[in-house]
Amino acid sequence: KLPPGWEKRMFANGTVYYFNHITNASQFERPSG
């Protein structure tokens, strides 16, 4: 399970990334916590 605010998303080319809808942060590494 991801930390609060984070969700797993995917680009059109299939690349997975993680987006935080609270802070609008995005990253390729899975957030810890």
Rank of each mutant, 00 (worst) to 15 (best):
K1H: 13
E7W: 03
N13P: 03
N13W: 05
K1I: 14
H21T: 15
K8A: 12
A12S: 12
S26D: 04
V16I: 14
K8P: 06
N20T: 01
L2M: 08
G33Q: 12
T23V: 04
V16K: 04
I22Y: 12
A12D: 12
A12H: 09
L2R: 01
Q27F: 05
Q27E: 05
R9G: 05
N20E: 02
S32P: 11
F19S: 01
N20G: 01
G14Q: 05
H21F: 14
P3M: 04
F28M: 12
S32D: 14
L2K: 05
M10E: 14
R30A: 11
N13T: 06
G14N: 05
E29V: 08
W6P: 00
S32V: 13
L2Y: 05
P3F: 02
K8N: 04
F28E: 08
R30T: 08
E7Y: 03
H21L: 14
M10D: 06
N20K: 01
G33V: 13
M10R: 09
E7G: 02
R30N: 10
G5Y: 08
S26L: 14
M10T: 14
G5N: 10
T15S: 10
N24T: 06
P4W: 12
N20V: 01
Y17G: 04
F11W: 11
G33A: 13
Q27P: 01
V16W: 10
N20W: 02
F28T: 11
T15W: 07
N13F: 02
T23H: 04
K8Q: 15
S32Y: 13
Q27T: 11
Y18K: 00
P31T: 00
F11G: 13
F28Y: 12
E7P: 00
E29N: 09
N13G: 07
I22M: 11
I22F: 12
L2P: 11
H21Y: 15
N20L: 02
N24V: 04
A25Q: 15
A25R: 10
R9I: 09
N13Q: 04
M10A: 11
A25H: 13
E29K: 06
F19D: 01
N24K: 12
E29I: 07
F28N: 08
E7R: 04
I22S: 07
K1M: 14
N24D: 06
F11V: 06
K8D: 05
N13I: 02
E7Q: 07
T15H: 08
G5R: 03
P3N: 04
G5S: 05
G14R: 02
N20H: 05
W6E: 01
P31F: 01
K1L: 14
P4M: 10
P3W: 04
Y17N: 01
P4V: 09
F19G: 01
F28R: 09
F11A: 14
K8M: 15
V16D: 04
F28G: 06
N24G: 15
N24E: 09
M10G: 05
I22E: 11
G5T: 03
T23N: 07
E29A: 08
G33D: 13
N13K: 02
K1G: 14
R9M: 11
P31N: 01
W6A: 00
G5P: 11
E7F: 04
H21V: 15
W6I: 00
G14L: 04
N24A: 09
M10I: 13
A25T: 14
I22T: 09
G14V: 01
N20Y: 04
R30S: 09
A25F: 09
P4F: 13
A12N: 10
A25V: 15
T15G: 09
F19K: 03
I22A: 08
F11P: 05
E29M: 09
S32H: 11
G33I: 14
F11L: 15
Q27N: 04
F28V: 12
A12M: 09
Y18W: 08
P31V: 01
P3G: 06
K1S: 14
F11Q: 15
K8F: 09
P4K: 10
S26A: 12
P3E: 06
Q27M: 07
N20I: 02
F11M: 15
E7N: 03
S32T: 14
G14F: 03
G14W: 03
P31A: 01
F11E: 14
P3A: 06
R9V: 10
Y18N: 00
K1T: 14
G14Y: 02
E7S: 07
G33E: 14
G33K: 10
L2N: 02
T23Q: 05
R9F: 08
L2Q: 02
S26H: 11
V16M: 06
V16R: 03
V16Q: 06
W6V: 01
G5D: 08
T15V: 13
L2G: 02
R9N: 04
W6K: 00
T23L: 07
N24Y: 07
P4I: 11
E7K: 04
P31E: 02
N13Y: 02
L2H: 02
Y17L: 06
E29P: 06
G5I: 03
A25Y: 08
P3C: 05
P31I: 01
A12T: 10
S32K: 11
F19I: 07
P3K: 03
I22W: 09
Y18E: 00
Y18M: 01
Y18D: 00
G33R: 10
Y18G: 00
L2E: 06
I22P: 02
S26F: 14
Y17Q: 04
A25N: 09
P3L: 05
G33L: 13
P4E: 13
F19L: 05
R9K: 12
V16H: 07
Q27W: 05
R30G: 04
A25W: 08
G14P: 00
S26Y: 13
P31W: 01
S26E: 10
N13V: 03
S26V: 15
G5V: 04
P3S: 04
E29Y: 07
F19N: 01
F19T: 03
T15K: 12
Q27A: 07
Y18T: 00
A25S: 11
H21D: 05
Q27V: 08
F19W: 09
A12G: 09
E7D: 06
L2F: 05
G5H: 11
E29G: 07
F28H: 08
N24H: 12
I22G: 06
R30H: 14
V16T: 10
F28A: 09
G33S: 13
N13H: 04
P3Q: 05
N24S: 10
I22D: 09
G14E: 03
H21I: 15
W6R: 00
G5L: 03
R9L: 11
V16N: 03
F11D: 15
W6L: 00
F19E: 02
T23E: 05
F28D: 07
E29R: 06
Y17P: 01
G5E: 09
P4Y: 14
R30K: 11
N24M: 13
H21M: 12
I22L: 12
L2W: 04
V16F: 11
K8W: 08
